[in-house]
Design a protein around this nucleic acid. Structure first.
Lengths: 207, 207
DNA sequence: TATTTTCTGTTGCAATTGCAACTTTTTCAT
DNA sequence: ATGAAAAAGTTGCAATTGCAACAGAAAATA
């Protein structure tokens, strides 16, 4: 992706406001505590945004892939629960402080322009992903959530046969529904002829 | 807000890439059809993002207030349903094309820097709102959604007494639950002593 | 390769939710 | 000021969902 290359360029050429770090699987990349203007860019690998609730249950709030942008800057100020980003595989991450980018670095760093444009581009991508998730989460039944999710996959792939790119367990998390209830609904959809299902390969049979 | 002022400045001083338009209540501000890089900033007024579904039902997808940023640039490419932004009150809106901002305007417009920074700032705010909504939508019961929503309001206002800033009908939409079921759950929460309620004024009694 | 862990798939049951159909109250527009 | 429209509030009932508790398959790890 173009934007990332620009960032790397700026970094290599010595913009002092960017840091590049490597993480091994299961290492903590960052926590969302008092780093209000921290912005992170995942250059390679996969990571999860995790919350441990009051009962100590692990709750996967979000997950990030190559080229995703994240960080406390994207989150509301929280009093209670703390969020951590954990490496799911080995990761390479860029760290920047958006105050630096927007203000201090502005006048004197020749990479500022390209940086803020790149970050804006990534942030817009992030917004598109968020709106996609809001779209499916705002459906009121598991059936509608599934169909909406499949329909988005289908229009992305230009195909009536879609392959769910994550595990069904993670899909249930993404849709915020009980996994077993989701499995049941998948079966119902198949029985009623709306889809045919083979593992995570789904064929849409309607319209 | 600072960012908006900067934008107005750039506009007044004649950046050719920005347009400012006024709308009366119920007028269509924009549609999300083939304007992939359109970015709009609501300078004053209120507006709703609307979808008409297959049955012709009006569905409020999102709503915007002063200083909110929106536009097709924030939305996934859709094949089926079209989205429109409708003025809820009289509105003043800035229109920009993000390709212009990021590329064409870059080298020769002296306002480019301040523009891209401002847009980034607004886009980050937008991401915070989206993540807040995802947070409440991803709760699995109406009760949890309500408590999560109240808790966010409460930590924003530093108070255990919160006033729901929108109508209960709109709150049900925001939480994506049936309005009557939400009313029932509000009553249950009150009966069980978790909250006390007087219209849209809610007092949190737990912890 | 053996073993542990994660993922998939199922089902009964109780609790929650949506839906429909109302009445009452508040707000808006003429 | 008055009638119309929108919002708040209520309830019964049927459908959906979450929860718990499994078994078997697949994947990861030692």
């Amino acid at each position: 992706m173009d934007e990332i290359s620009s960032l790397i360029n700026a970094l290599e050429q010595g913009c002092s406001k960017i840091q590049k770090k490597y993480f091994k699987k299961n290492e903590i990349i960052t926590t969302y505590i008092q780093k209000r203007s921290q912005i992170c860019i995942l250059m390679s690998g996969k990571a999860d945004l995790i919350r441990y609730d009051l009962n100590g249950n692990k709750d996967i709030v979000d997950n990030f892939n190559s080229n995703d942008i994240f960080g406390e800057a994207f989150y509301p100020v929280h009093t209670n629960n703390e969020l951590s980003v954990i490496a799911n595989t080995n990761c390479c991450v860029l760290f920047l402080v958006h105050d630096d980018i927007l203000r201090k670095c502005k006048s004197n760093c020749k990479f500022h322009n390209i940086l803020s444009s790149s970050i804006l581009e990534l942030t817009l991508n992030n917004a598109i992903h968020q709106n996609t998730r809001i779209e499916v989460l705002s459906k009121r039944s598991i059936r509608e959530k599934l169909l909406s999710y499949f329909s988005i996959l289908s229009s992305k792939d230009f195909s009536k046969t879609v392959t769910i790119p994550i595990s069904l367990t993670n899909l249930a998390d993404y849709l915020s529904v009980d996994r077993s209830a989701m499995m049941r609904e998948l079966k119902n959809l198949a029985n009623e002829g709306f889809i045919s299902k083979n593992g995570s390969k789904i064929k849409l049979l309607y319209k």
